[in-house]
Design a protein around this nucleic acid. Structure first.
Lengths: 183, 183
DNA sequence: CTTGCAACCGGACCACCGGTCCCCATAGTA
DNA sequence: TACTATGGGGACCGGTGGTCCGGTTGCAAG
């Protein structure tokens, strides 16, 4: 990739973040993103393929730290801890991520629509949660339960819940769900 | 309401159903609906206010039977039965409804977007589920759990699950969730 | 049956969206 | 410096949800 291409890529990503933060998921069109990044619309599509691709990549970027933390040992997040503790820790982190990136979560959902189950980030999360559930409750349909649990981080639901109680409410409610599910 | 208005209203509703069935949620635009119903686009908007309104009203129509069944006594659905049985019966019915109206569920979701929590039909379901959960598990955040549980009927998730196992898979998985939650 | 008007209808019209395309500019290299 | 593949820009396209207003029509009163 040429140097100017890399620079533009970064500019587009940063402009998207800013617009998301400033105007909410609904009002971020690719025209606006391109204008804010100081590039043409064609450039946005060349780099990210589509609206979906743009938000997927932005989410992936924001989620890398969590993904890495899950695979490195030590602490309740990583391997070694019992599944219940790992899952409780994971949903806690996810809640924090959702709070800090509510608009991105919302935009990502709308953009991915039915391809939700093919998004790499979602797939990683699902595989992780699903494995933990399967380990703790062998009889259960773990894949389905994992989807249902991850559904708790639907941007609209998260906003709705956090509007009355903040992240702490979201965290404690999801943890309650996890405990009920795995106990 | 004038007779011709009532006739058109019905024509629009039926045309929407047919298009939904024939082409899937994605390809039902209000232009098409109007054309298929044999009316102008303005008529569609006057009757239903917006795309959202149209799908909300269609869903409400399809859901009336279930709503009534829930409130009439007798059978595990209605009042009198213990909450676990009532909830198990309710999610079973909901799964059937989702299967028969997958495209409508999908269109409704996309159209309602963030107003999901203001849709009258969803609100009724949520109140019902929430009350049953609160009755069976006083300590739990019933409102949140109800949202999470109803999230299982997200059209994309339902399609994904039913693609491999049909309605029965959906039913048994959701029932598994309900049992884990209320036991 | 006629008449009058309020309610209703239709579809041209609008702003905007995601996505495409192709000609031009430029970075990187020999 | 000169050459070329890669990247950039923005006009353009089909289609969308939503608006608006001039013409039409149901319907009840007389």
């Amino acid at each position: 990739m040429r140097a100017d291409a890399a620079r533009n890529r970064e500019a587009i990503l940063r402009a998207t973040e800013e617009l998301l933060e400033a105007h909410g998921a609904e009002h971020v069109s690719l025209d606006r993103v391109a204008a804010a990044a100081g590039v043409g619309k064609g450039t946005v599509f060349r780099r990210f393929g589509s609206r979906t691709g743009l938000f997927q990549e932005l989410l992936a970027e924001r989620a890398t730290a969590l993904g890495a933390a899950v695979e490195t040992a030590g602490s309740p997040l990583g391997p070694g801890a019992p599944p219940l503790e790992r899952l409780l820790a994971f949903v806690g982190e996810l809640a924090d991520l959702a709070e800090r990136n509510l608009a991105l979560f919302a935009a990502h959902e709308r953009a991915c629509a039915e391809d939700k189950y093919r998004d790499p980030t979602y797939l990683r999360w699902h595989a992780h949660v699903s494995a933990l559930i399967a380990e703790a409750r062998p009889g259960m349909d773990a894949g389905f339960a994992a989807h249902a649990l991850l559904g708790s981080f639907d941007a609209d639901l998260a906003r709705h819940v956090m509007a009355d109680g903040g992240v702490e409410r979201l965290k404690s409610s999801v943890r309650g769900l996890v405990r009920a599910l795995l106990t």
